[in-house]
Structures are given as structure tokens and as C-alpha cells.
């Protein structure tokens, strides 16, 4: 059974003085545990809207989203919030670390919404996760004193700290240079593989997309599978999609 299944998903936004805007047009996609999927597309192609629907942050206008065998529409807002916290880890382009809190406190933050031993052992778990991303020695450092690569590693540690089964990475290397971006992606791929989580990377960088096992292209709201060789070729040419 797939972890995530989107069937005929559309997203239409009503505009006050214009025709409705069709952002997503009948998307179908299935993602299983351990999958690594990349979705590429130009700016304005609907990538972020898709990410929000995948992350149970937004609902489609039509079509169905099934998460772990349950229809997302059948879950209450609270159940969706809880499922998101427990099962989904977000990695953002701008890292979105919480200001005024150390790297360790940032990684501990999702565990504040956990219960039982995850909550009570949050410090120990967060330190272990920081160690796994190679930042154990920077645990007490404030985000603004960390480099871009380090901040994204903290963000990865934070996304993975509750052991999610789905990791959603929105342009994870968008704010990093090529070398740092490559290192961060390698780390993300490795950690996702170790934990067995499904990884969906949304990017317009062919190099980043090439690291995935399955590839899709989102163009004008339509999602189509693309051949891995094509992505590799684009990556070798340094193409930004």
C-alpha cells in the first residue's frame, strides 16, 4: 500500500476580477515508504501548491489525497495536524529556523508536540539527531552564527527528529552554493535511506533532481513522469529547469 496517493488532484483559486486560476490540473502520483521522488518545474508551475497538498497543509479543490490509507478529507483539522507532526518532515528553502533559539532548541522544537518518551527524552533525541547531521558540536549555537549549509543541516535534523515516514523538501539547496548544496543533498538522501522515509524533493535544479530514483515534471499544473536519463543529461549540462 502506498504511503501517499494523489488521484485526480486539482487546485483552483478563484480570483475576484478574473477567470479562476487553475494551479494543478488532475494530478496522479503514488509515493511509497523508502521512495525518493523529485518533482521539477519552473517558477509558477504549482510546485509549492503541490507541496502544501502533499504535506496536508492545503486541500485540493477536487480529487483525493490518501495518506497511509486514509482519505485526508476524512480527517479533522486536528487529526491532520497531528498526522503532519508525526509522519511528515518539512525542509524549506530558507531553512525557517526559529530565531533566538539554539540549533539544539530548534531540533527539539518538533518534539514539544510529541508525547510520551519522545517528549520527555527530547534533548537526548535532538542531540543524537544533530550528531547524525554532523553538528553535535554546534548544538548551542544560534542559527545566525551558522553557515547556510549548517543551517540547512539543522533544518534536516529538525525535519527528521520525530522519525517521519515522509520528508518534503522544498528547494532544499535553493539558498546554498553548488558544493554545499551537493553535500546537503547527499546527507538528506543518506539519512532518508537510513530511516526508510519517503523523500519528495521539489526543485528546479536538475542536479538535485537527478539524485532521486523517480522523477516528475510539473508544467502548467500538469504532472508528468520524465525519464531519468533526460534529467541526468540536463544535470550534466548544468540546466536549471
Amino acid at each position: 500500500m502506498p504511503l501517499l496517493r494523489l488521484t485526480g488532484v486539482t487546485r483552483v483559486v478563484e480570483l475576484p476580477d478574473d477567470a479562476p486560476l487553475h494551479i494543478l490540473r488532475g494530478l496522479d502520483i503514488e509515493v511509497s515508504v523508502g521512495d525518493h521522488v523529485s518533482i521539477v518545474g519552473r517558477s509558477g508551475s504549482g510546485k509549492s501548491t503541490l507541496l502544501n497538498i502533499l504535506g496536508l497543509l492545503d486541500a485540493p479543490t477536487s480529487g483525493t489525497v490518501e495518506f497511509d490509507g486514509r482519505l485526508a478529507s476524512s480527517l479533522s483539522a486536528r487529526e491532520r495536524d497531528i498526522a503532519r507532526g508525526r509522519e511528515i518532515g518539512f525542509i524549506f528553502q530558507q531553512f525557517n529556523l526559529l530565531g533566538g533559539r539554539t540549533a539544539l532548541e530548534n531540533v527539539m522544537a518538533p518534539l514539544m508536540y510529541a508525547s510520551g518518551s519522545q517528549f520527555w527524552r527530547r534533548r537526548e533525541i535532538a542531540l543524537d539527531m544533530l550528531d547524525r547531521v554532523g553538528l553535535a558540536d554546534r548544538a548551542g549555537t544560534m542559527p545566525e552564527l551558522l553557515s547556510g549549509g549548517e543551517q540547512q543541516r539543522v533544518s534536516i535534523a529538525r525535519a527528521l527528529v520525530r522519525g517521519p515516514r515522509l520528508i518534503l523538501a522544498d528547494e532544499p539547496t535553493g539558498a546554498l552554493d553548488i558544493e554545499t548544496g551537493g553535500a546537503v543533498m547527499a546527507l538528506l538522501d543518506s539519512v532518508a535511506e537510513t530511516t526508510g522515509a519517503a523523500l519528495i524533493t521539489i526543485t528546479h535544479d536538475a542536479n538535485v533532481a537527478a539524485l532521486a530514483r523517480r522523477h516528475f515534471r510539473l508544467d502548467r499544473g500538469v504532472l508528468t513522469p520524465i525519464d531519468v536519463q533526460r534529467v541526468i543529461a540536463l544535470a550534466s549540462e548544468g540546466v536549471t529547469l
Binding site: 504535506g55 497543509l57 483539522a77 486536528r78 495536524d81 497531528i82 498526522a83 503532519r84 507532526g85 508525526r86 518539512f90 525557517n96 526559529l98 522544537a109 518538533p110 514539544m112 508536540y113 520525530r162
Partner: peptide, 11 residues
Amino acid sequence: IRRSFGATATR
């Protein structure tokens, strides 16, 4: 950001 971690509206 906290909502993305799973913070409910009540919380």
C-alpha cells in the same frame, strides 16, 4: 513553522 511541525490550532 510550528504548525508545520504538527502544532494544532488549540495548541
